[in-house]
Each structure stands twice: as C-alpha cells, then as structure tokens.
Simulated scan of single mutants.
Amino acid sequence: MNILVCDDEPLARERLSRMVKVAGHEVVAQASNGFQALEQVRLHRPDVVLLDIRMPEMNGIQCAQALLDLDVPPAVIFVTAFDQHAIDAFNTQAIGYLLKPISQQQLENALKRASKLNSAQVNSLQQHANASESPDRPARKHIAARTHRGVELIPIENIYYFLADQKYVTVRHSGGQVLIDETLKDLENEFHDRFIRIHRNALLAIPYLEGLEFVGTGQYQVRCRGINERLAVSRRHLPQLREKIHHI
C-alpha cells in the first residue's frame, strides 16, 4: 500500500517510515501537520495515513475530519502518545489508534486491517460520517477498548454479547474479549436494534441467538451461535426472548 506519514517530530516520522518499509509498504509522502497532510493526500492519493494527533496549525483529529470530505478518503490510523483522544479519533472513522512507542508487530497488524478496507467499506464509512452530523446520530460501528496493545476497535457485528460486572462491561467478540468502561444501559439504548436484554447484567447479539435450554427449577440459559458458552436468562426477560426466537 501507499502510505503517508504525518507527525510534527522529524525523528518520529523517520522511525515510522522505516517501519512501514520493513512491513513491505511504500511511504509516498511525509507531513508535519494536518494542513500539509491534506495537501499531500490530494497529490499522492495514499491508501493509508499514519496520523499524529497533537500537531501545530491543524491537529490530527481536524485533519481526519477533513479527509472524510474526499470522495474516497484514505484509511486513517492514529499514532499518538495520548490515549484520551480515542473517542474523538474513532468518531472520524479511524480504523486504528496506536499508542507510542509502537512495535513493528502493532503497526503491521494495523496495516493488515487497513488492507482489507475495500471501496465498498469506504463508501459505507463516508455515509456513516455524513449521517453522524445529523441530530439523530446513528449507533457506532465499533466499540473502543483500551488493552495492552493500545486502543482496539471491535466491530459491532463481531460482538456476541455484553456482560456487566461491577463497574466494567466485558465485550465478548470473535477475537476474544475486552473490558470497557461503559454502562450496560447506555449500550442497550444505543444498540437496541441488534442486542436484546436477557438478564440484568447481559445483552446478547440477536444474530448470534441460537436457542434456549432448560436447566431445571424454572431456569433457562441461552445458546450463542459460534461459541460454546451459555448465558443465564432471567425470568423477567424470558418472554421477550422467547418471542424473539419465534420470529428468527
């Protein structure tokens, strides 16, 4: 892929450029702020922009938002020393958020995800970005989670269930599980079209709902397609779940 590296620190740009080349990709241009990045993107049409956040004149968030106005925007991967900008970054449809100092493997994993971003997905991201400007903002397409690898994006369609435990929520997805600092109620309100409440501490993805199992003494558990785990179903939510299964 053709890649643009944008960072206001020359040494950081050079290090990233070397890592990109080791990964087998080409650095077509460099920039030291958002304005320069926009100019270089228009000149070179890179597939991916590796973008710092804190920069003079135009920061990375502003630059990424401006990139969305292009007919076919490049994929954006933020590379920054600051994790507090993650939510703002993902609202610009960035596909990655790496925390400095990044490793060669982290960069290659992020670039591998970027290489799977086909034109249909780009168009979908653009439509989502335009829709997010309206008062009735649609649900997110990803969940952001802080892990030992940095900040990860978990596609909503890959999530089996949300399980609350004290102040955190476990997100069980096709690649494993992560913890997020969000409430189950907020998640239920945002993703009510895709997830159904099965217990006071659990939301299940409707596409992965496989069936119910009776476990005795009036207790039921739900089978989840794709994994062997079973989740408890409360009596309060059993009627709604039965109705949903009947219409699948």
Score class of each variant (00 low, 15 high):
S32P: 11
N201A: 14
F162L: 05
Q84S: 13
H192R: 15
L153E: 12
R13S: 08
P56L: 12
N158T: 07
N109D: 14
L51S: 00
I3C: 09
K112Y: 15
G218K: 14
A81F: 11
S32I: 06
I196D: 09
P239L: 10
R223P: 02
L241I: 11
L111C: 01
Q219D: 14
N33A: 06
A75D: 13
V178A: 01
E157I: 14
G60D: 05
K21I: 15
A110L: 08
A64N: 01
I61H: 01
Q62H: 13
Q219Y: 06
G218D: 06
H44W: 13
E133I: 14
R149K: 10
A37V: 12
L68Q: 15
R197Y: 08
L117C: 14
P207D: 04
V20D: 05
N228I: 00
C224I: 15
V122E: 00
G218H: 09
D7A: 07
Q40E: 12
I159P: 14
V41G: 03
D47A: 15
S115T: 13
R225A: 13
Q105I: 08
L163H: 15
E39T: 13
M1P: 00
K116S: 07
A205I: 00
L125I: 11
E39G: 14
Q240S: 15
R235N: 10
G218S: 10
K116Q: 14
R223N: 10
E229M: 02
L4R: 03
L68I: 15
H44E: 05
L51Y: 04
A81M: 13
V41T: 05
N201D: 12
A164G: 04
V169D: 03
V178N: 04
Q221P: 00
R236E: 09
A29T: 05
I102T: 07
L51G: 04
Q105M: 09
D181F: 01
E210T: 05
F90N: 10
K112L: 09
G60Q: 00
K112M: 12
G34R: 07
C6K: 02
L209G: 06
H199Y: 01
V233P: 06
Y168M: 06
M1R: 10
G211Q: 01
I87R: 03
R223A: 10
R242N: 04
Y97K: 01
M19W: 04
E26G: 10
E157Q: 08
L99Q: 13
L16H: 00
R223F: 10
A205H: 11
E243P: 03
P10A: 02
R146M: 11
P207T: 12
N201F: 13
G211C: 01
I77F: 02
A66W: 02
V233N: 05
K100T: 11
A94R: 00
L204H: 05
E9M: 11
L4V: 10
